[in-house]
Design a binder for these strands. Structure first.
Lengths: 196, 196
DNA sequence: CCTACCGATCGGTAGG
DNA sequence: CCTACCGATCGGTAGG
């Protein structure tokens, strides 16, 4: 009766509900009902509701960090690095959409140290991303802009993908990454497509 | 003792708390405490917690709609329209940051008809915005891209402003609108700045 | 604007 | 994995 990955099933069930209704609107009884269990039984597999959120956030954060570190190891030009960083980010977001959606929207519900730890990691990730923009300026390939502003604008476009991406839709994660990269590098104006 | 705008004070207090802690994490008792009242007294001025959210969302939505309608009445070129639509959007978002933040983040907590009514209005707004992109394509001034993709990417950049805008920061709403427009039209590549 | 209070729901524990 | 249950908290009402 005891499946080896019962814990994993609880996570997937909980994340699907939390994506749909939000963290606070998803009760342990909701999760239990979706699993055909009683709420107290969940605690044989997980330690708390907040732990469901924390484990999810820390896993996604680790995926982001790993992806960006690899990009920085392998590529050297700013345009190339930026394109691959975008690709990595989109790959992480689309790999497990329930988890990504919950990460993007619900991390604020973490309390105290957990929340602060996540903020520190986010800031580090953003700083690494921002260095790519600084590199592009130093190279002379990117416009000299307000780096922080550009970074926030770029990351918002990337993270918004969790709102509308559908695995069975007409754009693959790879195509999304390509289009985002093209848009971020060249914008809407018609003059120069695919300069790279 | 009865100030004429007591209701307005409750809204401002509630929105500041909801921005900080989220809709579900803000109790009527929290709002009352911040107003130096008891929770039941709030109901002499407002009808329900959900009504606080609804009034806020519908007000912001109306501001968006009004702004975009004016832009469409006054301007004719796609680049010009887009620039002014961005300016209008940023002006609405930055006018009352607590309300805008709550609108962007918490509208999902509206139930049933209210929620659906808001989705309809959002879809209309997005469609009107999207027509500007279609106009730019027809004019030959914008690249031929996936309109829906471009729209979502643009709106995500605009809405993300509620995350980082600070009234006492170093960028005014007008400067933010200019930079966003520049970025959206021309991207990061160095070749052509300020083509317009 | 307050006191007193309601029914519902919450995350989680005890004990088996 | 369940039953039984706890203390806390919630939005809101009654009645003044």
């Amino acid at each position: 009766m005891a499946r080896p990955n019962r814990k994993e099933q609880i996570f997937q069930t909980a994340l699907a509900l939390m994506r749909e209704k939000g963290y606070r609107n998803t009760s342990m009884r909701d999760i239990a009902a979706a699993m055909n269990m009683e709420a107290p039984s969940l605690y044989n597999h997980i330690s708390s509701k907040e732990d469901l959120l924390w484990q999810t956030c820390t896993r996604i954060a680790a995926d982001f960090e790993k992806g960006l570190a690899e990009v920085n190891d392998i590529y050297f030009g700013a345009s190339e690095k930026l394109g691959m960083a975008i690709r990595s980010h989109i790959e992480v977001l689309t790999r497990d959409l329930d988890a990504s959606y919950v990460f993007v929207h619900e991390w604020r519900h973490l309390q105290g140290e957990l929340r602060e730890a996540l903020i520190v990691r986010r800031d580090k990730y953003e700083a690494a991303f921002r260095e790519i923009l600084a590199l592009g300026e130093a190279e002379g390939s990117f416009v000299e802009a307000d780096n922080k502003f550009a970074l926030l604008t770029i990351l918002s476009s990337l993270n918004w993908v969790v709102e509308w991406y559908r695995p069975d839709g007409d754009m693959s994660p790879s195509q999304i990454a390509n289009q985002l990269t093209e848009f971020i590098l060249n914008g809407l104006n018609k003059h120069h497509n695919y300069v790279r």
